[in-house]
């Protein structure tokens, strides 16, 4: 069984009112356990709305979202949904509930009624996962953006979710912070085999995923292997999306009649393709 299953999902803002807006228009896709998915799309494509539908913060106007077999509109079981799918949001400053880091991370397991001793262990583990153990007793507001976002990730990890959704979690960070967060995500994937859904508008971040789902004006326009999706410059452009730089250069070179072989997404792939021709 898929860990998340989305069927014919439609979501409308201000439903049945004059200013009704259809944000998501008939999405269907499944997420298997252990997958690393990048969800891309320009601003206004409905990406962030989708994130909130995946753990029942919003309810579909029609269609269904099923998490581990539970419908997200199933009120009595909503906490089983949220226990399974954890979401990290965009703004690192707006996710802290407590003024001491360990108290903030303990918030999730406390809500779930985990015994005190186990909460303590989870806090230790979550902080170690994001490499912030030495800050346990500190306060978040003196930290850098990247560090704050790592604390937010730890707060979600402490719930021990099986899927972690990152809703543009790096978009407000500087390059160093972005790198910190991306490294943490890859570390978690390797060690904990967690399913990751990363919402982003940076093509080079998407290149780290296994599978890319692209949204354009509320519809899925691409859903395939990340590598082949990101190497297809023309198709991405048609949906207002950018390809990674090496893919763009390869595209231009091919237009000039230089027949580079294969799908090109990374620097080294471009390098190899050029030297194979020379």
């Amino acid at each position: 069984m898929s860990i998340i299953s989305v069927k014919n999902l439609i979501y409308k803002y201000n439903e049945d009112e004059e200013d009704e807006v259809t944000a998501l228009n008939g999405l269907s896709f499944d997420v298997e356990e252990g997958e690393f998915i990048a969800l891309i799309g320009s601003n206004g494509s409905g990406k962030s709305t989708l994130a909130k539908l995946l753990n029942g913060l919003k309810e579909p106007s029609s269609g269904t979202v099923t998490v581990d077999g539970i419908d997200t509109t199933d009120k009595p079981h909503i906490f089983d949904v949220r226990k399974t799918v954890g979401v990290v949001f965009q703004n690192p400053d707006n996710q802290m509930v407590a003024s001491i880091i360990e108290d903030d991370i303990a918030f999730g397991p406390e809500n779930l009624g985990v015994p005190p001793k186990e909460i303590d262990e989870r806090v230790d583990w979550a902080l170690a996962c994001v490499g912030m153990s030495e800050h346990r007793k500190g306060t978040p507001h003196r930290l850098s953006g990247g560090q704050k976002q790592r604390i937010a990730i730890a707060g979600v990890l402490a719930i021990k979710p099986r899927v972690i959704v990152l809703d543009e979690a790096t978009s407000m960070l500087d390059p160093r912070g972005k790198k910190e967060v991306m490294d943490v995500i890859e570390g978690i994937r390797e060690r904990e085999n967690m399913t990751v859904i990363m919402i982003t508008h940076f093509p080079d971040e998407a290149a780290r995923a296994d599978r890319v789902i692209a949204l354009d004006r509320g519809r899925i326009v691409l859903d395939e292997n990340a590598h082949s999706a990101l190497s297809d410059v023309e198709r991405l452009r048609a949906y207002g999306l950018d390809a990674p730089l090496p893919a763009r250069i390869a595209y231009e070179l091919r237009r000039r009649g230089i027949a580079l072989e294969g799908e090109i997404v990374t620097n080294s792939e471009l390098k190899e393709a050029i030297w194979r021709l020379k």
């Binding site: 763009r248 250069i249 070179l253 230089i258 050029i274 020379k278």
Partner: peptide, 16 residues
Amino acid sequence: GEEELTEAIAAQFRNK
């Protein structure tokens, strides 16, 4: 820049 780089690589092939 991006365009110049494309051009420079293309030039490498033309010289051959």
